[in-house]
Simulated assay, not measured.
Amino acid sequence: MRVPFVKMHGLGNDFVVLDGREAALPTLDAALVRALADRHSGIGCDQLIALDPSTRADFAMRIFNADGGEVEACGNATRAVGLLHGAAATIATAGGLLTVTPDEGGITVDMGAPRFDWDAIPLQYPMDTLAMPVGWEDLEEPVAVNIGNPHAVFFVPDCDAVELDRLGPLIEHDPLFPERVNVNVATVTDRDSIRLRVWERGAGLTLACGTGACATAVAAMRRGLTERQVVVTLPGGDLSVAWQAGGTIRMTGPAAESFRGHFDTAHFGA
């Protein structure tokens, strides 16, 4: 089966997008996703994105991490898909309905309302999610937020000094997080700006993470560290995040198409 794809990225967080809205896609099992995501023998990506028809939205989006696991949300991918679609749209995801709107600042995504209850993250047992009484070495008292997927946010003096490549997988796989967790280390640099690095569940260190930027901004706002609109600077670039308590999160940033091509499923054992 010969399948077209579009290679895209949002601030360096890159995707292979398969558009199945008008033509059937192959079965996307974990083995095929891992093979396509491989940067040496496949196309290479952090996430594979599949677009499908939907009866409850303009279309549906499925998200697979490079390890082959399907996840609920990806903010950068949503912006990329918004660019590919080329117009305002409602998108059905496993994490809920999202809306995208192209504008002068790039693509704005309404990410929905954040969730803070311990069982909505989810955590293994009840605790205060605004200052979790847990720690891993110098990373202590994170904020837990669900932005369609689970996040732990640590505020530190210098996020660049954290050994995130070592601590990230330890925290991601801690039994405290039954569905694993995205690990964010952040430094608040002003009332309207944050620096951020992310260990992404199932993908590892990433140049940018849209849901991580949203989770971190919301966590900072809840702790009174910032105003209600901030610029989050990741290694790949900047995202603007706005949130009012009780409302939905609006994230704005760029996305880009890199190239298009085809692959044959027979070359990947499918």
Rank of each mutant, 00 (worst) to 15 (best):
1 M>D: 10
3 V>A: 03
4 P>N: 14
5 F>I: 01
5 F>M: 00
5 F>N: 01
6 V>C: 08
9 H>T: 12
9 H>M: 05
14 D>Y: 01
15 F>C: 02
16 V>F: 00
17 V>R: 03
17 V>C: 06
19 D>Q: 07
19 D>M: 04
20 G>T: 00
21 R>V: 11
22 E>N: 14
23 A>C: 10
27 T>N: 07
28 L>Q: 05
28 L>C: 07
30 A>R: 15
33 V>Q: 03
34 R>F: 05
36 L>N: 06
38 D>A: 13
39 R>P: 10
45 C>F: 11
45 C>W: 02
45 C>T: 04
47 Q>A: 10
47 Q>P: 12
47 Q>V: 11
49 I>N: 02
50 A>K: 06
54 S>M: 09
56 R>I: 15
60 A>M: 07
63 I>D: 02
63 I>W: 02
64 F>L: 08
66 A>T: 13
67 D>Q: 12
67 D>C: 11
69 G>S: 15
70 E>P: 04
71 V>W: 09
73 A>L: 09
76 N>H: 01
76 N>A: 05
77 A>W: 01
79 R>M: 13
79 R>W: 10
80 A>N: 05
82 G>P: 03
83 L>Q: 11
86 G>F: 11
87 A>K: 14
87 A>S: 14
89 A>C: 12
95 G>M: 03
97 L>M: 10
99 T>P: 03
101 T>K: 12
104 E>T: 13
105 G>T: 09
105 G>C: 11
108 T>F: 05
110 D>Y: 02
111 M>S: 04
117 D>P: 00
119 D>N: 15
122 P>C: 09
126 P>W: 13
127 M>E: 14
129 T>G: 10
129 T>E: 09
130 L>P: 02
130 L>H: 15
136 W>I: 12
136 W>K: 11
136 W>A: 13
138 D>P: 14
141 E>M: 14
142 P>N: 13
146 N>D: 07
148 G>D: 01
148 G>W: 00
149 N>I: 04
152 A>L: 15
156 V>D: 08
156 V>I: 14
158 D>R: 03
160 D>S: 15
162 V>P: 06
164 L>R: 04
165 D>N: 14
165 D>R: 13
167 L>W: 14
168 G>T: 12
171 I>G: 12
173 H>L: 13
173 H>K: 14
173 H>T: 15
174 D>Q: 13
175 P>C: 12
177 F>H: 08
178 P>F: 12
179 E>K: 15
180 R>A: 08
185 V>Q: 05
187 T>H: 05
187 T>M: 07
188 V>Q: 06
190 D>E: 13
193 S>M: 06
195 R>I: 02
195 R>K: 14
197 R>W: 01
200 E>L: 11
201 R>S: 10
201 R>M: 07
201 R>K: 14
204 G>L: 08
207 L>N: 13
208 A>E: 03
208 A>L: 05
216 T>K: 01
217 A>T: 04
218 V>D: 00
219 A>W: 01
222 R>A: 05
228 R>H: 13
230 V>I: 07
233 T>L: 04
234 L>R: 02
238 D>R: 04
240 S>G: 03
243 W>E: 00
243 W>Q: 04
243 W>D: 00
245 A>E: 15
249 I>G: 03
249 I>R: 02
250 R>E: 01
251 M>E: 00
251 M>W: 00
251 M>R: 00
252 T>V: 06
255 A>N: 07
257 E>A: 12
259 F>W: 15
259 F>G: 09
261 G>R: 15
